[in-house]
């Protein structure tokens, strides 16, 4: 199930993602982009998408189960593949191309996390004790919601970068390669709205799974760090999706919030599930 080759493959994909990021940063710094480097960057991102998708498919086929997600590694692979596809799409839009410089570090992070997950902290889900249908739905929502959060955070990062350059009046001629603030804010709002909806479903199904456990809801379940962090992220997205009405949070604040929401999600998924010791809401067994 978890061959060492997967760790090696993910390491290669992470290295490719870093190479694409280097090209993306060079592009941002250049006065004029070069067609050759753009093609190379696109090619690498597509290769990463195909690579992550292939590893994900391989694990699914070899698991012999109907659920595609049998460990967090699968979720990370799925997010990586979807994120790479999203970045590849972004790169087809001339004024959004610059976004890839902000998305590729996230992709690298996901892949690096996947390497850790595969090599050192591999822990399959305890699918026998959880309702398989709710579990599948919950995990799908969690990972798709995270993808939306990632895109919102990427747009937020780019918003802050463009705004900083506009305010500081630095390298102004090069700004034309980047999306306008209005478009970025719209992207933040749209992805945050979609993420909010999907994460709401994830929270509800997560709660159902908790209730479905033997013994029902454990005492103090609402104080579990994962619940607290996930709810905090959910609240952040509730604000971000309404910045046009809650105008206090407009512009720069919305961008920071979208990044903060994604960091909260990362904390919720990453630190809590990887930390040793018992947690109220953990899918994995102790190994």
């Amino acid at each position: 199930m978890n061959h060492p080759i997967i760790s090696i493959l993910l390491s290669v994909l992470a290295a490719l993602s870093i190479a694409a990021e280097v090209l993306a940063l060079r592009r941002l710094r250049r006065a004029e982009p070069t067609a050759g480097e753009d093609r190379a960057q696109r090619g690498i991102v597509v290769a990463v998408a195909v690579g992550a998708g292939t590893v994900f498919a391989y694990r699914y086929v070899s698991s012999g189960q109907w659920q595609p997600l049998t460990a967090h590694l699968d979720g990370l692979l799925l997010i990586s593949a979807l994120l790479a596809i999203t970045i590849a799409f972004i790169q087809t839009r001339p004024r959004l191309f610059g976004l890839s410089a902000f998305g590729l570090p996230l992709l690298t992070l996901m892949l690096a996390w996947g390497v850790c997950s595969a090599a050192w902290t591999y822990r399959p889900f305890n699918l026998d004790t959880l309702h398989p249908v709710w579990m599948g739905f919950h995990l799908t929502c969690v990972y798709l919601g995270t993808l939306c959060a990632a895109v919102a955070a990427i747009a937020g990062g780019m918003f802050l970068y463009v705004q900083r350059r506009l305010k500081q009046k630095r390298d102004l001629p090069g700004l034309g390669k980047l999306a306008s603030l209005e478009r970025l804010e719209l992207l933040i709002i749209q992805t945050a709205s979609l993420g909010f909806t999907i994460l709401t479903l994830a929270l509800i199904t997560g709660l159902i799974l908790l209730i479905d456990q033997p013994g029902g809801l454990p005492a103090g379940w609402w104080l579990d760090p994962k619940i607290v962090l996930a709810t905090a992220a959910w609240l952040v997205y509730a604000v971000v999706m309404n910045v046009r009405y809650a105008t206090t949070f407009r512009g720069q604040r919305a961008a920071w919030l979208s990044i903060a929401g994604f960091v909260l999600l990362l904390l919720a998924y990453g630190i809590v599930t990887s930390m040793p010791g018992p947690v109220v809401v953990a899918y994995g067994g102790p190994g």
């Binding site: 506009l166 306008s180 603030l181 209005e182 719209l186």
Partner: peptide, 10 residues
Amino acid sequence: VDFARQVFDD
């Protein structure tokens, strides 16, 4: 105009 387009899209 270029700067205006950097702030606004439409």
